[in-house]
Design a protein around this nucleic acid. Structure first.
Lengths: 226, 226
DNA sequence: GTCGATCTTCACCAGATCTTCACCTGCCCT
DNA sequence: AGGGCAGGTGAAGATCTGGTGAAGATCGAC
């Protein structure tokens, strides 16, 4: 749910950021290649939107160095030049997708959704299911056993992250790093509180079991059985 | 390394097949939607190149039905129409990439390579085995001969260290230095106690052998035979 | 500006876990 | 056989982790 935009042209970066934030992604922006590389290495992003023509360090170099450092986030390249060579070189130096400017915002966000899906092999449709929990990623509607659960954006991102990795255990700090942008990371209490309210909302729907279970000393996990 | 092309126009299918075969992929071709769906379901393909305008069954339907049947191969859609709606619908019904005709052969094969990379990157196993001991590093679940052993974080770290170095013998002090942070290193009793509780927990699961054996004067070792 | 929803922080509690202590057992060597 | 010492055991205290309610901070809508 975390996206990094590496783009120096603010006329492109700003509307892109707003559109993606509107779709409940956590979005950070880097304004040159060097900053982009640093942030991508540190920030645990799922998708990086990478412009090719960048100050200080080209998009190709960022992509290559990111891969060499073992990072496996999805990379979508953006470029004004539509030459075939660029595309082939870009894809072969580790990018996962390639879009030429001017691009359509709807197409781009569809490609971003596809990259998210691909990074989690089990959810191919716009509805992510984890046992009785269903998340419609288009309407952002969350249901549990058919009952609608009214969640806030932060709770939505938390549930998405759990649903994408069923049975996986996440430490509180891990969730903070993966779902919050670096400048707004809070304390452990933040996670505790969001988990608490999520549990309360799910319980209000009539579910007595603990859907988000805590494994003491390890973290939180979403139960896919009931 | 297996690719399926679903395309009725032979002027496209034939050169595409030849190009991909030239790159050492195993390539099959289906000439309509129905045939494509059947072959994709049966043939265990890594990547499916799917034309949208097909006789008998549209590319959208093939894609959707393939996903609904649980198939998770990579799907790359091809179409002559370059409308944005097609792209968004295509990507959201489960395709991983989208290319409009006329496409460049080099670009297409670069995209195919990117899809392969992605599917390989995600098939990494997360289970560490050492004989009958299994540690799932995603769910932090430890099992011995299939029985779940409920371990604390410190015990988990100990087991991980043993499982990473099967047959190796570790002195108590060595374990302290490797698994504890420098400022919180405790006394030798600490290790003794943790080994004790680990042994007790494994024994509680019905294992009579000493799984963590002590080699007098040298240290502890995890037995991988039984 | 006010209002409400949401997000974050705080102080405090209960319980799980970790470490330490004192003492016991059993191996190795002379 | 007996001393010395590595290793085992149980229990008590210290420490850490997660849960809770309420208060403060932030943001957007009107």
């Amino acid at each position: 749910m975390k996206i990094l935009i590496v783009e120096d042209d603010k006329r492109i970066a700003v509307p892109l950021k707003e559109e993606l934030q509107h779709q409940n992604y956590v979005v950070d922006v880097a304004h040159d290649g060097l900053q982009g590389l640093e942030m991508a290495k540190a920030g645990q992003y799922d998708v990086v939107l990478l412009d090719l023509m960048l100050p200080k360090l080209s998009g190709f170099s960022v992509c290559k160095q990111l891969r060499e450092s073992g990072n496996s986030c999805a990379i979508l390249m953006l470029t004004a030049r539509s030459g075939k060579v660029d595309k082939v070189v870009g894809l072969d130096c580790g990018a996962d997708d390639f879009v030429t400017k001017p691009f359509d915002l709807d197409e781009l966000s569809a490609r971003v959704r596809a990259l998210f899906r691909r990074s989690v092999a089990h959810s191919r449709s716009s509805v992510i299911s984890c046992g009785p929990l269903q998340i419609n990623t288009v309407s952002c509607l969350v249901t549990y056993l058919g009952n609608v659960i009214d969640v806030t954006p932060t709770e939505y991102r938390l549930l998405m992250h759990f649903a994408h990795n069923p049975t996986a255990i996440f430490r509180g700090e891990e969730l903070l790093h993966k779902l919050w942008s670096p400048e707004s990371v809070g304390g452990r209490e933040t996670i505790k509180t969001h988990i608490k309210t999520l549990r309360k909302k799910i319980a209000a729907v009539g579910v007595s079991e603990q859907v988000i279970e805590t494994v003491y000393g390890f973290g939180y996990r979403l139960r896919s059985d009931v």
